[in-house]
């Protein structure tokens, strides 16, 4: 059933991969706006703990999310080598705090496998698919699902 759709979408995709909590993840390179070093964030009150706060991105207020903690992994200890990947989600920008950027992957869409049914809800919710490169497994993050539900703003 899915076969035709896959063969039609035969263009190569480029993905930026990075490390978060000892696992390798990636996002579509087209959604990455920039990659920058870690700088201390201003915490937001009454927010989920994976929201590390906000930083100044050239005049805009950028929320920073600890990707590892969002995926229910141990929280990231930000260091000088930590990296913020600024990704665009719809009209919004969000900064993902990760350990390090590792690679740019160029793949065929067929290389992406659907996420198998694993026990971890977070992994199921946020991982769009799995990619195997040599002996590495890289999970593609569905960035649009990362931000908490916007309550009270739906109108």
């Amino acid at each position: 059933m899915n076969q035709p759709a896959i063969t039609v979408a035969n263009e190569r995709r480029e993905l930026t991969s990075f490390w978060a909590g000892d696992q390798e993840y990636c996002v579509d390179i087209m959604s990455v706006r920039e990659i920058r070093g870690w700088s201390a964030a201003t915490p937001l009150p009454q927010s989920p703990s994976y929201m590390r706060g906000v930083i100044n991105l050239r005049g805009a207020v950028l929320p920073i999310m600890d990707l590892a903690e969002r995926l229910d992994l141990p929280p990231t200890e930000p260091s000088e080598r930590s990296v913020i990947i600024v990704v665009q989600v719809g009209e919004r920008l969000v900064g993902l705090l990760v350990d390090a950027v590792s690679d740019i992957l160029s793949i065929n869409p067929e290389q992406i496998q659907p996420t198998p049914d694993v026990g971890c809800d977070q992994a199921k919710a946020f991982v769009r698919g799995l990619i195997t490169i040599d002996d590495r497994m890289v999970s593609e993050i569905a960035v649009e699902r990362l931000l908490p539900e916007l309550e009270g703003l739906a109108a």
């Binding site: 937001l44 207020v61 920008l93 703003l153």
Partner: peptide, 17 residues
Amino acid sequence: IKSLESNYQQVPGIAAA
């Protein structure tokens, strides 16, 4: 005044940033 909502959402007790 910088909007928090443009990239995030309203935060209780906070008007803006």
